[in-house]
Design a protein around this nucleic acid. Structure first.
Ligand code: FES
Ligand code: FES
Lengths: 133, 133
DNA sequence: ACAAATGATACCATAGTGGTATCATTCAAT
DNA sequence: ATTGAATGATACCACTATGGTATCATTTGT
């Protein structure tokens, strides 16, 4: 059972890395090297972050990525959503209609409760709070 | 993101079904039919429950499965563990050593906190409580 | 011109999940 | 004794998600 995929984890680590970097602009290759992660995959991940507005990218020689937002505004829950889709712990149970015949099932309610707990927790975490912690 | 797999869900539903059944002994085929689930897969699931001691099985004609324990003693967390392995939300992060170089990482702590929350919640749920709820 | 970087895809390998099929064994009913 | 219905134990298959690589085009500083 995974709360975070590697994608999300790499993104968080890259963002933390970039937050403490001067000058701000870094290449995917460099981040990969410094964090010990596969460069090409790092790059794909950063491109997703760029499209989502978290990073600014610059092409060409001496190009790279830099933070586009205050790390206080980047919430963990949004990163999870970006890379893994909406946080819903009953995907296979409800969306795929396993329980279609059973209305107001107690197990369903139990799972939705837990989901709410997790969500609440994730919403309180930002990249900035991770750095500080 | 899935908290429960179908395996686990099927198991819970079968156990709830069996709790209200007289006579107690039921065949996998019958459970599958009544719950609208694939019979062979149901059977495989029940065999796991049997091996784990939750069910008693009887071979031969007019054989089948019946509950071996009080439903109050069957905890959801144990079923999840049985079918999906230990509840640990950082599987890919820690077991697979993504973060080997980073000690006392704040993200790790955050995830472990959430895991503890979920675990606590799951431990309070039994098959009996699901029926009552 | 050239090298270094991103943009955008396409591709591949692996593992997990959901599900079926088979064969052996047991046991009740006839 | 024979037969049918059930489990025990595996082996097998299909599908999907994930992690990761490769390619080609485009941009840009030197
Ligand atoms: S029966 Fe599966 S969640 Fe309700
Ligand atoms: S850097 Fe990934 S959990 Fe710590």
């Amino acid at each position: 059972m995974n709360l975070l995929t590697r994608n999300t984890d790499y993104a968080v680590r890259a963002l933390i890395y970039m937050a403490g970097k001067v000058p701000a602009r870094v290449s995917a290759r460099d981040i990969g090297r410094d964090l010990g992660l596969p460069g090409p995959f790092m790059r794909k991940t950063l491109q997703v972050l760029q499209k989502a507005g978290y990073l600014i990218s610059t092409k060409g020689k001496s190009g790279g990525f830099e933070l586009a937002q205050d790390t206080k505004k980047i919430r963990l829950v949004d990163l999870v959503t970006l890379f893994q889709g909406p946080v819903s712990m009953g995907d296979c149970l409800f969306k795929k209609k396993i329980c279609s015949g059973i209305k107001s099932c107690p197990l369903r309610r139990e799972i939705l409760d837990i989901e709410a707990l997790v969500l609440e927790r994730l919403q309180g975490v930002t990249v900035a709070s991770l750095i500080k912690g």
